[in-house]
């Protein structure tokens, strides 16, 4: 018995330009401090930023074996990630022991008490390739995609997850949730987290109290790279529509799962590989085949459009696309008319 998931009146959306991400994790901390400081969510990051190529967060997230969808979009049994080997435990440290040894001849270094197996962005800046010929990496910030066909909604036997009618934000009703974790298992993006103390699922709420007041989510608003755009998908004057529909340079992550993500990425361009003599070859360092494994075939025309517009700008010609992506006026990255405004008396 599949659920009938009604189409929302509007869909709020985010575009992230991967050419500009610094990997600074300001977004991660902005989100974590705002929403996820409870003991049972210590390990979880509604917003995470991972180095790719790499194993991601949780480890193996880009491996089709972990998600509850086949690459043809069918249902398959997914995996609930392990706290040690996939997420990484929120480690505790031997601060007292280290401090007590400060004056002693044998100093004890600060180290985690637990055996470290994995953690968020654990393979930071490792990437792939050989320096200086073709070494490469880029950062992939990830949050819940507030999917059009959410696997998490489909997976919950208690109908505790729903898509909001007003803006398509996908929310867990924690009063209904019994902590069965089918949603964690089914989401191929692994963006539902289990609060192991309160024993309920938790996930990104797209900062809905801010959205209702016309303020962008904390991850987007605090991003020093100015690479996040937020608005509604049907707003033809807004950045989302221009980047996704008009210029078609913003594309979803793992479209093969068929969930219809509403978070989109401008794929990373990369400098050329060098030949044996150290001369540029014209071939991008980040293999396009690798980008295709993440973003599907749409990455080819998206990269072509980006390169063509960049060349146009270099020739001194006007480019709406480049002006938009450069984000001269950062406030223009967000087009979110307030739906209601709370006035505190």
């Amino acid at each position: 018995m599949r659920y009938d998931i009604p189409k929302p009146l509007r869909q709020v959306s985010m575009v992230l330009d991967l050419n500009k991400c610094l990997g600074c994790q300001t977004c991660t901390i902005a989100c974590k401090k705002l929403w996820n400081t409870d003991e049972g969510t210590d390990y979880s990051y509604w917003n995470s930023v991972e180095t790719l190529p790499g194993r991601g967060f949780p480890a193996g997230v880009h491996d089709p074996a972990t998600g509850g969808r086949t690459v043809e979009g069918g249902v398959r049994r997914g995996v609930v990630p392990n706290l040690d080997t996939a997420y990484g435990r929120a480690w505790t440290f031997n601060h007292e022991e280290a401090r007590a040894s400060a004056g002693a001849p044998d100093k004890i270094w600060i180290r985690p008490r637990e055996t470290v197996k994995w953690g968020p962005n654990f393979d930071e800046d490792q990437g792939q390739g050989d320096y200086p010929k073709d070494n490469h990496y880029f950062y992939l910030p990830r949050l819940c995609n507030h999917c059009t066909h959410p696997a998490c909604v489909d997976a919950c036997p208690r109908a505790a997850i729903a898509k909001r009618r007003e803006d398509g934000i996908v929310l867990v009703d924690q009063d209904r949730c019994h902590g069965y974790r089918f949603c964690v298992e089914a989401c191929p993006y692994k963006k539902v987290y289990y609060d192991h103390v309160r024993q309920v699922s938790t996930k990104c709420i797209f900062c809905l109290p801010r959205i209702e007041e016309g303020v962008a989510p904390a991850c987007a608003r605090q991003c020093p790279g100015r690479l996040r755009f937020v608005g509604y998908r049907d707003d033809e004057q807004g950045p989302i529509w221009k980047l996704v529909e008009k210029w078609k340079v913003a594309i979803p992550l793992h479209p093969e799962y068929g969930l219809g993500p509403n978070v989109f990425y401008v794929p990373p361009m990369s400098p050329p590989k060098l030949d044996a003599e150290g001369r540029p070859t014209g071939e991008p360092r980040i293999p396009v085949s690798y980008l295709e494994s993440l973003f599907g075939a749409a990455v080819h025309p998206a990269l072509e459009a980006l390169l063509a517009e960049r060349a146009r700008r270099r020739r001194g010609e006007a480019s709406e696309l480049m002006d938009l992506l450069i984000a001269y006026d950062w406030q223009q990255n967000f087009r979110l008319p307030p739906r209601q405004r709370e006035v505190l008396g």
């Binding site: 018995m1 599949r2 659920y3 509850g68 049994r77 696997a151 489909d154 997976a155 109908a159 089918f182």
Partner: peptide
């Protein structure tokens, strides 16, 4: 097969 939603009936068939 009777379980609510589209996931459990297929994933645990």
């Amino acid at each position: 097969a009777m379980q609510p939603g589209g996931y459990v009936p297929v994933a645990y068939a």
